[in-house]
Every structure is written in C-alpha cells, then in structure tokens.
C-alpha cells in the first residue's frame, strides 16, 4: 500500500481501489470532486442536497469499479454516473413538486451563492445559477457540459450517449432558450 498517490495514473488508482486501498480511492475523489460538483450543482443548484448526490456518485463509482474496463476515460465514466443520478433526482423532485406543490420550475431548485468577495462576483454567480435553473433539464445538462465543464460538442455527445446531431440541435435550442431567459434577468 502506497503512502501517497498524487503522481499515480488512474488505471493504477482504480486497481488499488478495487483491492480496497482507501488512500487510492480518496485520491480519485480528490481529483474528480470538482468536476462532479460542477455537473451536479450546475444542474440542481448549489445546495446541501447536491453534496449528498455527489457522495452517492462516488459510492456508486466505488461499487462499479470492478466493471470499469478502462476503455473510456475515468472522468467520462464518473461524469456519466453524475449525470444519471442528477437526472434521476430532477425527475424525483418534479414528481414530488407536481404532487405537493404549485411551485414553478426554477423554484424546485435552491441556490446558495457563496460568500464572494465582491458584489459583482455574487451577481455573476446569481445570473448563471438562475439562468441554468430556468432551463429545461435536457438543455441544462448540455449547457453544464459545454459551459461549465468546457467539453467540446463531440465529447458532450460521447458522455451523454447521444448522436452528435441530437446534441447539435439541443445546443441550438438551448441557446435560444438561454437568450430568452437572460433577457429577463
């Protein structure tokens, strides 16, 4: 068992994690937690529940590591888990709110704008969060991938398991919807 995995490549990290090396898995979590946070918080809003889903993502990852064959990048594999769990949570909330509340789409999500050092930054964070939460979930996931993660259209299609044409058409519709939302903000 190694004392530090900072320089270790991901395949070795995966193998060590499968063998039950806590430190190796902790390194995987440290490397990818920010990426997962961007996806989940970009799609669900910045709340404590997002962190619970983040934990669920890594727990699911740990349990499915023996099935990871290394054909795709580990980041892609984690991203897929994060997206699936977040979409499930969105569906769950939608069902809950349609049964028990009259709240609108954006009110299903919460955002806690972190303590930022300037009003300008706080405003920027608020504009982005509000815009994202007002988008339809199927567009929100694409926007999160392109805008927050910086993935190319091709990479986005690969992660979402969608044909490139579908991603392109959703991007264009998402852009239209985003324009509308941003004019109101």
């Amino acid at each position: 068992m190694k004392e530090s995995y900072r320089q270790t490549d991901e395949i070795e990290l995966v193998k060590a994690s499968i063998d039950g090396d806590r430190l190796a898995f902790s390194e995987i979590v440290s490397r990818y937690q920010k990426m997962v946070a961007r996806t989940i918080k970009g799609m669900l809003g910045d709340s404590v529940f997002s962190e619970d889903i983040g934990q669920e993502v890594f727990i699911k990852l740990y349990n499915s590591l023996p099935e990871f064959r290394g054909e795709a990048k580990l980041s892609t594999y984690i991203q897929k888990i994060a997206i699936n769990l977040t979409l499930n949570e969105i569906k769950r909330r939608k069902r809950f709110f349609s049964m028990f509340s009259q709240k609108g789409n954006s009110e299903m999500y919460e955002f806690e704008v972190a303590d930022l050092d300037s009003t300008e930054k706080r405003d920027a964070a608020e504009v982005v969060n509000k815009a994202l939460m007002n988008l339809e979930p199927k567009f929100r996931v694409i926007v999160a991938m392109r805008m927050l993660q910086g993935y190319s259209t091709k990479e986005t299609a690969e992660i979402l398991g969608l044909p490139l044409g579908t991603v392109l058409s959703r991007l264009s519709r998402a852009q239209e919807q985003l324009k509308d939302i941003l004019t109101k903000l």
Partner: peptide, 9 residues
Amino acid sequence: DEGVSYNFS
C-alpha cells in the same frame, strides 16, 4: 474567475 465556481465542502 468571475465567481461562478462550484465545489463541495
């Protein structure tokens, strides 16, 4: 850089 940053605890 503009403050749109997401992270966990």
